[in-house]
Amino acid sequence: MTYVQLSYGDLALAALLLIANGIVSFWFQLGLERTIAISAVRMVVQLSVVALALKFIFSLDAPLWTVLFGLFMTAAAAYEVVSRQERRIKGPIALALGTGAPFFSGFIATMFATMVVIGPDPWYAPRYVLPIFGMMLGNALSGTSLVLDGMTSAAVRDRSAIEARLALGAGRYEAFDKILRRALTTGLMPILTAMAATGVVSLPGMMTGQILAGIDPVSAAKYQVMIMFLIAGATGVAVVAAGLGAVLLLTDERHRLRLDRLSKA
């Protein structure tokens, strides 16, 4: 079985469906017509640039270029984490937390996938490392953003309750216990929902792409199961690291609440 090549005309026909979104926005006066157009153009440009870059890196098959592109993806992830926060913690340490949590969890999951599970030769082949790392990083980023946003918003909202617990002798983690558990639940919910709905409600993008490319559905399902397990693990590590780190940054060594470290986005 071979896959069907798509022409630029086919992509243009598919883009016509965006008109429906524009009509909805215009009809309900949402004012999103410009945003829809910009988002679509941005997506096409970004994917085109990334596709050309990956084609170049795959042809070289050099570890240095793989590392450089991975760092570029991490830098983009750092920007996304910061931009998604309604209230963000000031200082470079907070940026390091928002970047480091998804990066290291994604890195560990990627190394485990390529060195243990899949085992390509060589294990650092960019054709395997970069796509897997991108999926790990993107999902861990979403979980990290949700946790950090939940922690900072709750710290402001529940300031009195947190300070009361601290005044009664509770440690920083004890005072943030309910807030931390709620934030961790929020950060993990998207991947848990995705796993529960996969196969019954929806076919994930990776599995669908492989099937359209001519891969046997059973083989495609195996890869999808592996990826979902890896994403769940990476997201779990990232949200826990982000949650615990947020508690440290929102308090000081004397276990006082430090809302002065927060700034409006």
Score class of each variant (00 low, 15 high):
residue 49 V to H: 08
residue 51 A to R: 09
residue 54 L to K: 06
residue 58 F to M: 10
residue 59 S to I: 06
residue 61 D to C: 12
residue 61 D to K: 13
residue 62 A to N: 15
residue 64 L to G: 12
residue 66 T to R: 04
residue 67 V to A: 13
residue 67 V to Y: 08
residue 69 F to E: 01
residue 72 F to E: 12
residue 73 M to C: 14
residue 73 M to A: 10
residue 75 A to G: 11
residue 77 A to M: 12
residue 81 V to Y: 00
residue 85 Q to V: 15
residue 85 Q to D: 12
residue 85 Q to Y: 10
residue 86 E to P: 11
residue 86 E to H: 14
residue 87 R to P: 03
residue 88 R to W: 09
residue 89 I to E: 02
residue 91 G to C: 09
residue 92 P to Q: 15
residue 95 L to T: 12
residue 95 L to C: 12
residue 96 A to K: 14
residue 99 T to L: 07
residue 101 A to S: 10
residue 102 P to E: 05
residue 103 F to S: 00
residue 103 F to N: 00
residue 104 F to G: 01
residue 104 F to R: 00
residue 104 F to V: 10
residue 107 F to W: 10
residue 107 F to L: 14
residue 112 F to P: 02
residue 113 A to E: 00
residue 118 I to E: 09
residue 118 I to R: 05
residue 119 G to W: 04
residue 121 D to E: 15
residue 121 D to C: 13
residue 123 W to C: 13
residue 130 L to M: 08
residue 130 L to S: 01
residue 132 I to Q: 00
residue 132 I to C: 05
residue 133 F to N: 03
residue 139 N to C: 04
residue 140 A to I: 08
residue 141 L to W: 05
residue 141 L to P: 01
residue 142 S to I: 12
residue 149 D to T: 12
residue 152 T to S: 06
residue 152 T to C: 07
residue 153 S to M: 15
residue 158 D to K: 14
residue 159 R to A: 15
residue 163 E to R: 07
residue 164 A to T: 13
residue 165 R to N: 10
residue 166 L to Q: 06
residue 166 L to P: 05
residue 166 L to W: 06
residue 167 A to M: 12
residue 169 G to S: 10
residue 172 R to T: 02
